[in-house]
């Protein structure tokens, strides 16, 4: 009993560490697309892990927590996809270290092959 609660609390702590790293990445990254990468992926994983830790700790809540995890897993990539598409068609400048840009017109032939 005690061991299961401790394991669940540790998983929640791991998830909160990922949320903190998502916030740190959204401050430290150099341009918009890296910020989308860091923020969305890290915060989605952190939320899933922390909700999963609460589900381990308290087995009466497990179905509702699994439904929340399912919705977060579906809806969060949609929003980041829409934002990054809008930023790309608006012409946001990338950083100098960018290697490939498959959506631009110059590389379109390469990506279709």
């Amino acid at each position: 009993m005690e061991i299961r609660e401790t394991v669940g609390a540790a998983v929640t702590l791991l998830g909160s560490v990922f949320i903190f790293l998502g916030g740190l990445g959204i401050v430290r990254m150099p341009d918009l697309f890296n910020r989308i990468q860091a923020g969305t992926k890290a915060s989605t994983l952190g939320t899933i892990l922390s909700l999963l830790g609460l589900a381990i700790m308290n087995e009466a809540w497990i179905w509702k927590l699994l439904v929340i995890i399912f919705f977060v897993l579906i809806t969060n990539p949609i929003s980041s996809n829409v934002i990054s598409r809008a930023a790309h068609f608006r012409g946001t400048r990338m950083t100098n270290k960018t290697v490939a840009d498959l959506l631009s017109d110059k590389n379109k032939k390469i990506s279709e092959e």
Partner: peptide, 28 residues
């Protein structure tokens, strides 16, 4: 930290991403 990017961010899309991160953190 997301609030810091919200105040500092140079464009609207940066603010939208910061808003998204704040929402997902609020769920936890």
């Amino acid at each position: 930290l997301a609030l810091f990017r919200f105040i500092l961010g140079p464009d609207v899309t940066d603010r939208a991403i910061a808003f998204d991160v704040m929402t997902v953190s609020s769920i936890s």
